[in-house]
Amino acid sequence: MSESLNYKFLWDTFFVALSGVPVTLFVTVVALLIALPAGFLLALTRINKIPILNRLAQVYVSFVRGTPVIIQIFIVYSSVPLLLDSFFKANSINMKIYEVNPIWYAFIVFSFNTTAILIEVFRSALGTVPKGQLEAAHSVGLTNFQAYRRIIIPQALVVAMPNICTATVNLIKATSLGYAMSLQEITLKAKVAANAGYNYVEAYIDIFIVYLILCSLVEFAFKRYEQRLARYKPASA
């Protein structure tokens, strides 16, 4: 390793790391599109204490909370393909499971992990909305769907949005573990660029800067959206 920073490499590799941002954002957006509705629906099963589903949701949340994301990645990316390959061979199914693009595994792992987090976010947020709001909506002829869409969800979002923002930022940072699946995201691209000259310090500085910029922009976007939701605060008081 060089005694001083290679500033030319630092500058060049910053743009290499930056080129991994689209993949990082793509995985983040897809994972959120899956996790937001799934987390909300499973939160409702916990609030309404639906038999079996409520218990399954509890076990699911406990499992995700109790295991590191990297272990979940190894389970999905290593164990699942091995089991599927054995199943396909046993049933003479011509499926090349090891040629599947790693981004599909990233969708599975990160949506699986984020859903568990959002279950608790939505459960606590929905719990802040008085039950009388739903009863009042029914009394004026609104269906459950209409009541939730027009009254319950906007008020719950006021409470949930800071935690959703935190979950999103944590998701973006967690995608850095995608290198374990050979996912061409920010971290892997910078580390590959560093391999030739062993410029790992510079590469990690670039990774740090790119994630700092990206997460700061996401936080700013959420703050702006929180301001738009502020009109629902009196209704949730």
Rank of each mutant, 00 (worst) to 15 (best):
G66H: 08
A156S: 14
T128F: 05
L118G: 03
I117F: 14
V100E: 08
T114W: 06
Y98C: 01
V64Y: 05
Q146M: 12
I93R: 03
S86Q: 14
F40K: 01
R150E: 13
T45S: 12
G132F: 02
F145D: 03
A125I: 07
L32I: 08
A106F: 03
Q155H: 09
F122T: 03
L56K: 05
F122I: 05
L42Q: 00
F87D: 06
I119C: 00
D85H: 13
E99S: 14
P130L: 10
P130N: 12
Q58G: 09
G127S: 09
L84M: 15
S86Y: 13
V121M: 05
P68H: 10
M161D: 10
P51G: 06
S92E: 14
G127N: 07
M161G: 07
T143V: 06
N113C: 09
Q155T: 08
R55I: 13
T166Y: 15
G127D: 05
I151E: 11
Y60K: 00
S86W: 13
V140G: 07
S124I: 02
Y60W: 03
I97A: 05
T45Y: 06
A90H: 07
V59E: 12
I93W: 12
A90P: 01
F107Y: 12
A38K: 01
V80G: 11
N113S: 10
T128I: 05
A136Y: 04
L84T: 03
P130M: 05
P68C: 10
K96D: 15
L142F: 13
A43W: 07
P102F: 09
I52F: 14
I70V: 14
I103N: 04
S62L: 14
L142I: 08
V140I: 15
F88H: 05
F63G: 04
Y105L: 10
I97V: 15
I151Y: 11
P81L: 12
A147V: 04
G141M: 02
A156D: 06
P37R: 04
G66C: 07
T114D: 06
F63E: 02
F112Q: 06
V29S: 03
T28K: 00
A57P: 02
L84F: 13
I34Q: 03
N163H: 14
E99N: 14
A160K: 06
N48F: 15
N144M: 07
L126I: 01
I108W: 13
M95G: 00
C165N: 13
E135Y: 09
I103H: 05
R150F: 15
R149L: 15
N113G: 00
I52P: 01
T143G: 05
A35V: 03
V27M: 07
S124W: 01
I47R: 10
I47G: 01
